[in-house]
Design a protein around this nucleic acid. Sequence first.
DNA 1: GTCGCCAAGATTGTTGCCAATTATGGCGCC
DNA 2: GGCGCCATAATTGGCAACAATCTTGGCGAC
Lengths: 218, 218
Amino acid sequence: MRSAAEVAGLLRDGIVSGKYAPNERLIELDLARDLQTNRAVVRGALTQLEAQRLVIREPNRGVRVRSYTAEEAAEILETRALLEGLAARRAAERIDAAGEHALRAVVAAMRERQAAGDLLGYSEHNARFHRTIIEIAAHRTASSLLAALASQAVRYQFRTVLEPGRPARSLAEHEAILDALCAHDGAAAERAMRSHIGNVVATVRAIGERPHLTPDMA
Amino acid sequence: MRSAAEVAGLLRDGIVSGKYAPNERLIELDLARDLQTNRAVVRGALTQLEAQRLVIREPNRGVRVRSYTAEEAAEILETRALLEGLAARRAAERIDAAGEHALRAVVAAMRERQAAGDLLGYSEHNARFHRTIIEIAAHRTASSLLAALASQAVRYQFRTVLEPGRPARSLAEHEAILDALCAHDGAAAERAMRSHIGNVVATVRAIGERPHLTPDMA
DNA sequence: GTCGCCAAGATTGTTGCCAATTATGGCGCC
DNA sequence: GGCGCCATAATTGGCAACAATCTTGGCGAC
């Protein structure tokens, strides 16, 4: 039987990937059936996601997938910038040939997707780039906080990559991070990562300020 | 009936305050009795604490309170420095007369306890100082991450305040943070907070490097 | 005396059930 | 035709019992 922690992970993936839409109700019995587990485990997983603010629970009314205002999204990304900046610094200090190879491959894939105009594919590789850096950093505390952070859900809700001109700039920012990492320059890597996520924050704020589009139409 | 979230809070307090010692086994039935709830919500609370890495769960063997190596403690504090630095910056931008008054009172109490040689009392007010700043910052994301962080457990396990000379320096560092906050200087507040927690990290590392004392004797 | 096996007790993991609460849909009333 | 009330269904919240697993302590063999 799946543990509550595993089920929480599956649910998180489902929320992040859009399988469960913002504001969608999550019915314990249905989830238990879908994930082949029992209600008790689902309940435990849901309280975990509640603590991580990925879902909202209302007494006797169950949980719904949370949706974020632009201001909240900016807060989340602001925090993520700090934590990933730390990860980038550590990664620059620890990266080896294998890690460098892996990262270069991801960036090459990003460049290719961007050139092909496949924005969602680009977004996928983008996420993988960040995950790889966190892995290389091997900072368990930062890693577990980042995993708990709703930043992936925000990524799904605010598709910054669809903004005109954003993919090209994003690619350049990732290349700057890669360069700093390969040069083993921790301070530069941290700066590049913060600046990159800072630009994402700015884009999210810009999306949020467009008055007539509600965020979850993205 | 208490919710899982509430119970998780109570258990966290118990761990942080030393009511539950590092490596102590936490028996679901006992906790349910002590906290006047049932096993199901205790289980939910424990999975939450497991995700926050405050306890370790081994299958079919229950959960134990986690204990931290100096290296892990340093990682946790390193993360806390970033998040509280962010909170300090925001607090400097938002602080009003009431907040200033509250913070000054806390620091006065710290000064008084330190002069009286009451180190544990000092440590209490110290914790309150940090909590107050986080409150003033009103940054929900950072606040919930900090709440999840095991930094309070670390504080209990590594009693840096008992190190010779540490209380006086600590007091000076807190006064520097207070000054920056009252001057509404966000950058200075962030710098002061990071530097302060950086010194705590250094102290923890020093404690960890003393070979013959295991950390949990503190 | 020590080692290993076995039984009993303790604890966790799972399941099902019932009560309380909320959502849904039909029905009559205006 | 629309609105509100009521019965019913769906869902959550809480509980207890059962099964599986681990731990403990005793007993006998060597």
